[in-house]
Design a protein around this nucleic acid. Structure first.
Length: 272
DNA sequence: CGCCAGTCCTGACAGC
DNA sequence: TGCTGTCAGGACTGGC
């Protein structure tokens, strides 16, 4: 499940492989992604014959900027964006292929079709600008986090998953950050003290930076732009560890469902 | 307007 | 062995 660290790892691994490269050909599968089918006319206009200028990231979105426009990309649950040799057999659920020089191509594969591949010319799509605070930016301060959380009565766990408040956290890193900060996931956002907000800010930054340092968490499908798995799954403290002893106090890790998502935490270390 | 439940989608896996 | 049912969750939609 690609969250900020996985998307950033994909971005970093793709950057040297595709920036300054020219897209010499385009292929699109007839399969539709759930949100929308990549528009063939726009694909041509935005990407064909274009030079790749940059690959940027905001939250869990990637933005490939080209000389003619670009593409807004989201990996959803199972999306992969990798550079392959042209002769490498196509995997099922390959949605887009962008041919590069030297017999290589950038492939977008997404079995569960929760992702997005939207070419554009002119204005960058609105989703890109609607995103909340970037937790890795200098501007992500305790005060900013507290302000964002005070805007909602929702449980802090659900608020942290709201991409318009803070962009990039998903279900895994939210559980990890709340554990590290000693904050109970069901605590309402409005009840987060300055002291707790400071701990939470530091914990969010720490788990995301650690995730990037470990090249992402590979529990199911996730791989980077070169097809390599990450190592961060070995460093998770609570996610997926229901019933196992807490690494801090030894109590059993608890799982509860919040917002139809599994939430892992330690009742002793994360008091309300 | 804010919140929440429901929805989509496929592969992996458990159980019979 | 082969089938069926359940589960995983990001982001959107519709109802209240």
């Amino acid at each position: 499940m690609p969250e900020l660290p996985e998307v950033e790892t994909v971005r970093r691994s793709l950057e040297p492989l595709v920036v300054r490269e020219t897209i010499v050909g385009i292929w699109r599968s007839p399969l539709a992604l759930r949100r929308e089918k990549p528009d063939p006319r726009l694909l041509k206009k935005a990407l064909e014959g274009a030079r790749v200028d940059a690959i940027d990231r905001a939250g869990k979105y990637l933005l490939m900027r080209t000389s003619q426009g670009g593409a807004l990309i989201h990996l959803g649950m199972s999306g992969q964006l990798t550079v392959e040799k042209r002769e490498t057999p196509l995997r099922p659920h390959t949605h887009v292929r962008l041919s590069l020089r030297g017999g290589r191509e950038l492939r977008y594969v997404d079995p569960r079709r929760f992702g997005l591949f939207r070419p554009f010319v002119g204005e960058v799509p609105a989703e890109w600008n609607a995103l909340g605070l970037d937790p890795l930016a200098d501007a992500f301060t305790t005060e900013k986090l507290r302000e964002a959380l005070k805007r909602t009565t929702r449980a802090v766990k659900l608020a942290l998953l709201d991409q318009e408040l803070i962009a990039g956290l998903g279900n895994i890193y939210v559980s990890e950050a709340l554990f590290l900060a000693g904050v109970h996931p069901a605590l309402p956002g409005t009840k987060i003290s300055t002291e707790k907000a400071a701990k939470l800010r530091d914990a969010i930054v720490k788990v995301l930076r650690q995730g990037i340092a470990n090249r992402g968490t590979s529990l199911n499908d996730y791989v980077d732009g070169e097809g390599l798995s990450g190592n961060n799954q070995a460093f998770l403290n609570v996610y997926g560890r229901e019933g196992e002893p807490c690494v801090t106090c030894g109590a059993r890790v608890k799982m509860s469902v919040m917002g139809a998502r599994s939430t892992f935490f330690c009742v002793k270390c994360q008091r309300r």
